[in-house]
């Protein structure tokens, strides 16, 4: 489903502090499977996720989504693909404070222009699915870490994307909550979603829910 060919990514290119986060990545990610990127901090996991999730463009190389080269597309088209195809779960959850859980969930769908009633119904269904209906009207800063993450998951699913991208999803969770997250992950996989996540948490990468683990170090893929 997603294919990367000789992908490189540099930050501050041409300056004294030039840094190559990715140094030639060739990778295929299969649809409907849970793939984990594993590696120490600075190995390039997050950068790779941003390129796959259309949050950034590679400095060189190609990224293909369902056979289409998306690495050189203008921002507007990348945004459209990002909105339709990818749902993001960030390490810090990145919810917008002051808004309710429900309002946070519908945020990615606002630019689509779908009727509000439809968006609210979908958001309520997702929150119910994640056992969070009773907290729908609560401001996100009043929620516990686990609840915040479930709101972030519901938000990632509001546009019914094919791919879920999760960056270090258990980094801010205790063991019990991490276990709960893995259960949700399993259900997403069972629902046919392609899941791509980065983690160095053994609870995640060694879980039977994860179909494939890709190891990274210094911006390259390494053999396990």
């Amino acid at each position: 489903m997603i294919e990367l060919l000789a992908v490189k990514k540099a930050f501050n290119q041409g300056r004294s502090n030039e840094y190559w986060a990715l140094n030639g990545i060739d990778l295929r990610i299969e649809a409907g499977r849970v793939t984990a990127l594993r590696g120490p901090s600075g190995s390039g996991k997050t950068t790779l996720l941003t390129l796959i999730g259309c949050l950034a463009r590679p400095t060189s190389g190609r990224v293909r989504l369902k056979g289409e080269d998306i690495s050189g597309l203008p921002e507007r088209f990348l945004t459209e693909i990002r909105r339709q195809t990818f749902g993001f779960i960030f390490q810090q959850f990145n919810l917008i404070k002051g808004l309710s859980a429900l309002e946070n969930v519908i945020l990615p769908a606002l630019p689509t222009g779908r009727p509000r009633r439809e968006l609210v119904a979908r958001a309520e269904a997702l929150l119910a699915q994640l056992q969070l209906s009773h907290r729908a009207a609560a401001r996100v800063e009043w929620l516990s870490g686990g609840e915040q993450q479930r709101v972030a998951i519901a938000r990632a699913l509001i546009n019914d994307p094919e791919v879920i991208v999760a960056d270090e999803p258990t980094a801010n969770l205790d063991t019990v909550l991490s276990g709960e997250f893995m259960v949700i992950l399993e259900s997403l996989s069972a629902a046919g979603k392609t899941v791509l996540l980065s983690s160095h948490d053994p609870l995640v990468v060694e879980s039977p829910v994860v179909h494939r683990v890709i190891a990274m170090r210094d911006g390259r893929l390494v053999d396990l």
Binding site: R76, N94, L107, P108, P111, N159
Partner: peptide, 12 residues
């Protein structure tokens, strides 16, 4: 930044 990451365009 969050809004852009979750699918808002610069124009939005």
């Amino acid at each position: 930044g969050i809004l852009k990451a979750i699918g808002w365009e610069t124009g939005d």
